[in-house]
Structures are given as C-alpha cells and as structure tokens.
C-alpha cells in the first residue's frame, strides 16, 4: 500500500544568507590573498641593479616610466569606507522598518560601486600602458581587474537587495546584513590591495 508523504514545511531560515555570504567573502579574501602573495613573490624576485650614477640600487619591478595616479587610488580607498557606512545604514534602517532610507542607502551603495569602477578606469587611462608591455603590467592589470570583478559583484548584490526592498521583501535583516558584510569584506580586501599595489608598489 502506498501512503503519500505530506509535504514538509520549508526549513526555518536561520541567517543562511549571512553564513553563505561569510563563506563567499572568505573565498574572495583568499582569492585576493593568493594573488597578492604571487605579486609579492614576483616583486621580491625582481632583479636589483645599480643606478646609472652607481649611488643606489634599483629594483627592476615597477618600470621607471610608469607613474600610478595616487589621487584616484586614494579616492577609491576612501570611497570603499563610504560604501560600508551606506550598507550599514541600510541594515539600521531595515531594523526600523524605514523602507525609504533602506532604498536610498542601497542605491547609494550601487552608485559608489560604479564610482569605484570609474576611478579604476581613470587609473588605467592615466596609466597609459598596454597589458602586454611587461610582467609588472600583466600583474597590475590582472590583480586590479579581479578587484573590479569583486566590486561589480557588490553592485549586483546592492541591486538585488534594492529590488527586494522595493518589492516589499525587506522584513528580514538577513539580506541587508549579508550585503553589508560583503561590503566590509571587499573593503578589507581593497585595503590590502591598495597598500601592496598602490602604496608599496
């Protein structure tokens, strides 16, 4: 005899999104940590030579004719922190059921993501060298390009959270807390990239 099994209720959500985002943020952090490790290894292995006047040693890593535009990179660095504040504002407003402010905060997060990518493109334009021009250039474009992908993912996350909020599904803080966590994670990641690639070079 067959007795049909009644459909069970869906499992009660216990911050699944937050845990999954923590895992995804860990993956992103390890990805960039691995890339930075390879960067540091290349930099450490770069040949050292005497300067033309023989007075100092020069490491052949960053080509002499290249100048990284520091205004744009420092602006990017600061902008990430503004993104974190906006993402946390969305969480704060959600807890108070203030949908208008949630939407505003998430929209600003999205725009900040676009601004960061815009700043990175500005760096590329001012940099004005080809990717195939040397080892440093390959590594520079690869690591900063990967960072752009992580920021683009943050923008997608902001857009999805915004649409959920506009759609009236902002009753739980789980999505917005996860969104904020991801913004914190990429800010920490960019801090490391900024220090190694743009400050230490």
């Amino acid at each position: 005899m067959t007795i049909a099994l009644p459909a069970a209720h869906a499992p009660a959500p216990k911050r699944q999104m937050l845990v999954a985002t923590t895992a995804a943020s860990t993956v992103a952090a390890m990805l960039m940590a691995g890339m930075l490790a390879v960067w540091l290894r290349f930099r450490a292995a770069a040949p050292v030579r005497e300067s033309s006047d023989g007075l100092k040693l020069i490491k052949d890593w960053l080509p002499a004719n290249l100048h990284i535009p520091e205004v744009a990179t420092n602006t990017m660095f600061a902008t990430f922190f503004v993104g974190c504040v906006m993402a946390q504002w969305a969480v704060y407003a959600t807890k108070r059921r203030d949908t208008a402010h949630v939407n505003l905060a998430l929209a600003i997060c999205f725009i900040i993501g676009a601004a960061i990518i815009n700043a990175q493109i500005a760096v590329y334009l001012q940099f004005d060298v080809g990717i195939a021009d040397g080892a440093y250039q390959v590594m520079f474009y690869t690591i900063t390009g990967t960072m752009i992908v992580l920021v683009a993912l943050a923008m997608v996350f902001s857009a999805v959270a915004l649409f959920r909020s506009i759609g009236g599904r902002a009753t739980s803080t789980d999505v917005f807390s996860s969104h904020a966590l991801y913004w914190y994670a990429i800010t920490v990641i960019f801090t490391a990239v900024w220090f190694v690639v743009y400050v230490q070079k």
Partner: peptide, 22 residues
C-alpha cells in the same frame, strides 16, 4: 585553499592570453 589556485590561474590566463612574459 582552492581560491588561491584560482587566483594563480587568473594570472596565468591573462599572461597567456596577452603577453606570456611574466
């Protein structure tokens, strides 16, 4: 551990596609 492998693969991909110098 596996994201570290992917990070290396991204470098290799870009290098192989564009320059093969690094």
């Amino acid at each position: 551990s596996l994201p570290v492998l992917i990070g290396t693969l991204i470098y290799l991909y870009v290098d192989n596609e564009h320059a093969s110098v690094a």
